[in-house]
């Protein structure tokens, strides 16, 4: 494990915890796309089925369990506990436009045509676009709470760090996984516009608001 991979995992964890704490402390999930959260929970559940079939390390298994539990807890908070604060009117991205093509693609382009491998591939492709409902929601309302932007920053940073990790692993271990790399690139690129706004606005103490 190299430092970029570890930093990526930590930043992923920070993102998930920021979101959970934000919802819990403010007793509100205003501005959060429940649809993106359902997609992320689906990503973890379909990817980490190997918890039952292979043991890699204590670190690996614990992180998987933490990611799955936190993402399901987030979905629970948005759709049950704090449902009254959920801004469903603005969370109108058509999720089937993501899930159907991603499902089709995972059947067509995968490492091995087996159920586990197809589900893993599905989760990789789905993760790369799962943030779109959230970004769509922000573009609709034209603004985001600062804490939500921190969440997005760490979520974007995570896959960016994984990209560096993959370059590292290719050079030093000869390891590469083309499916993960291409999807990770797509995922990171989707955050670029947001990163720009984050650096030029949020880090200078301004609220993230889009020009009308």
């Amino acid at each position: 494990m190299n430092i970029f991979r570890l930093a990526g995992d930590v930043s992923h964890l920070v993102a998930i915890i920021i979101l959970l704490l934000k919802i819990w402390k403010t007793r509100s999930c205003a501005g959060i796309s429940g649809k993106s959260q359902i997609l992320f929970a689906s990503v973890f559940v379909t990817r980490y089925l190997d918890l039952f079939t292979i043991f890699i390390s204590l670190y690996n298994s614990s992180m998987k369990i933490i990611y799955i539990s936190c993402s399901i807890a987030t979905v629970y908070l948005v759709y049950f506990k704090f449902k009254a604060t959920y801004d469903g009117n603005h969370d109108t991205f058509r999720v089937e436009f993501l899930v159907v093509p991603v499902g089709g693609l995972s059947f067509l382009v995968n490492h091995d045509f087996s159920p586990m491998e197809i589900l893993w591939t599905f989760s990789i492709y789905l993760e790369s676009v799962a943030i779109l409902p959230q970004l769509f929601m922000i573009s609709k309302t034209g603004e985001a709470e600062t804490i939500t932007t921190h969440y997005l920053f760490f979520l974007g940073l995570y896959r960016g760090l994984y990209l560096i990790n993959w370059i590292w692993r290719y050079y030093f271990e000869g390891f590469f996984d083309l499916i993960a790399i291409v999807a990770g690139l797509v995922q990171t690129v989707l955050y670029c516009d947001f990163f720009y706004l984050y650096v030029t606005k949020v880090l200078k103490g301004k609220k993230l608001s889009l020009p009308a």
């Binding site: 995992d9 992923h12 890699i56 990611y67 091995d112 491998e117 996984d177």
Partner: peptide, 10 residues
């Protein structure tokens, strides 16, 4: 090729 299928990343 089987090695490709071992997923040690998250």
């Amino acid at each position: 090729d089987n090695e490709q299928l071992v997923k040690d990343e998250l």
